[in-house]
Write a protein that binds this DNA or RNA. Structure first.
Lengths: 138, 138
DNA sequence: TTAATTCCTATCATTTCTATAGGATTTATC
DNA sequence: GATAAATCCTATAGAAATGATAGGAATTAA
């Protein structure tokens, strides 16, 4: 399951997407509007910045904005920045590969292919740009 | 990511699938063959039994066996028994539905549909019977 | 100069995950 | 009937991850 960090991060990214580009949004504002604990948010924003998903403007009247065109940002990017791999087992992850400590031999692992298939179905959906995340119609 | 419990449980289920039906496999045997800590395994087996994936025979010469035809058992069942929901957010889970505490309104949640789609791609793959999990050919 | 803000390090609290301990109960076999 | 090999059960310990807070340094617009 997604961590709370990741959920907060997604809310933050979507908030910034909606926010007028010219005015940066302060952590305080985001915290209040999205009901995210302030200090926790600061720390998420730092991480999002490290991963080049948001940029910051320091000082009074400063704040945060998306670091790039929303058409180039996906939920997958946010998830990876917060929680790490999307794959359910590490030995099939593209970006976070690790061998499974329990596994004696990847070549003969009977579940590896299954989870690889799962991953390859998940990823393209999660990699859609956030511009495709319209509000559901009533 | 899958928990160690879930990985151990999957190994156990596959071990039992391969094991001759007439002789139950003891926790000790499984523990040794699959290198799973004995006491941890006992506790996993209990849980698998509660979820009616394995059955047990008590006493000397006792042990465990699959509770049903392997054609009726899937990795999804094992995962749900060990780790709970397969969905990445609780508000789209079929079996473990919960509203997201961060969410003000499901109807207007912008990521809900996306994660529902992800889930609906994952589930059919994970629900394939374990009889389809052949060893990969060289 | 002040106030608003990001930035940084550290720490705490809670929960979840992994694993172990110790023994009660059951049952096949000798 | 005794013994040994098992499952079964409750409890708890230890470790790691997660969620959250504290306190202040640095930056900058007004």
């Amino acid at each position: 399951m997604l961590s709370k960090r990741a959920k907060y991060a997604i809310k933050t990214i979507l908030f910034l997407q909606d926010h007028p580009e010219l005015v940066p949004a302060s952590a305080k504002l985001i915290s209040e509007k999205e009901t995210i604990p302030y200090k926790f948010l600061e720390n998420i924003l730092r991480d999002l910045k490290t991963h080049q998903l948001v940029k910051s403007i320091r000082g009074a009247e400063g704040g945060y904005a998306l670091a790039k065109d929303p058409a180039l940002i996906s939920i997958a990017q946010v998830m990876r920045a917060m929680d790490g791999p999307i794959a359910l087992i590490p030995c099939i992850s593209e970006r976070f590969y690790e061998s499974c400590p329990e596994c004696t031999d990847e070549a003969t692992c009977r579940i590896r292919k299954l989870f690889a298939e799962v991953r390859s179905e998940m990823v393209p959906i999660l990699e859609r740009p956030i511009t495709t995340l319209a509000l559901p119609k009533e």
